[in-house]
């Protein structure tokens, strides 16, 4: 797995640049954010590299065992028996398979920052990454409701504004369905019955 870490490692410093947002990535009440001259920054720079072409989650890889850690762990590998292994920063895969999903039908409490009034429900996805063999949560892109999702869909990691304050637009990772990968609900729910 050590070789794989080399392949997957990004030069993270080069990727911590500020960019303009993807056009059409957001709308509604956040339209003002997209036209704002404020800088766009990662809402969580140590976990999420905001990069207009290749936004990605930052993980660490225990090079001896091949275990990934997200959020990144720098102190010690959590894989039992690999306490002395090196931990290398890597980018997590930007595509995965929808493991499950839900939505927020009511506004979450603080410290969630509500960006529309009245509150608009949004979907949340749990996406399984095949290389890393782990499931990562994320909001689903604006404009895609939970009704449009089905387990088994392919999902792509993109970046959208999470909220805006006086200083900046805070960008976050979101999962976006890859067109044409929807799995019919009948097929998935019937499979294990």
């Amino acid at each position: 797995m050590g070789d794989l870490s080399q392949l997957l490692a990004w030069n993270l410093k080069d990727r911590q640049k500020l960019h303009t947002p993807r056009s059409g990535a957001h709308d509604g009440s956040l339209m003002s954010a997209s036209t704002s001259a404020k800088p766009q920054i990662s809402a969580k720079p140590d976990w999420f590299a905001f990069d207009v072409e290749q936004p990605h989650l930052i993980a660490t890889l225990c090079t001896q065992s091949g275990t990934y850690h997200f959020p990144p762990e720098y102190t010690m590998s959590r894989a039992p028996g690999f306490a002395d292994s090196e931990l290398t920063e890597v980018a997590l895969s930007r595509t995965g398979t929808l493991w499950s999903y839900t939505n927020a039908g009511y506004a979450p409490p603080d410290p969630y920052v509500q960006t529309s009034d009245p509150f608009e429900p949004f979907a949340i996805a749990a996406v399984e990454l095949s290389v890393e063999k782990m499931i990562v949560l994320g909001q689903v892109v604006d404009g895609v409701s939970s009704d449009e999702l089905s387990v088994g869909m392919q999902m792509q990691l993109v970046s959208e504004p999470l909220f805006e304050d006086d200083q900046a637009i805070h960008m976050i990772w979101r999962w976006k369905p890859v067109e044409g990968t929807a799995v019919a609900n009948d097929a998935t729910s019937g499979g294990a019955a």
Binding site: K44, T102, A104, P108, V113, L137, V151, L162, A192
Partner: peptide
């Protein structure tokens, strides 16, 4: 993480219950 899940994901406790429930529907009908 327990603070960040609200800030970054808007994930409440029912978010996790919803994920399990949907998974159950998919796996077991």
């Amino acid at each position: 993480p327990d603070w960040l899940r609200f800030r970054l994901l808007g994930a409440t406790n029912p978010t996790y219950f919803g994920l399990y429930a949907r998974r159950r529907m998919d796996l077991y009908g």
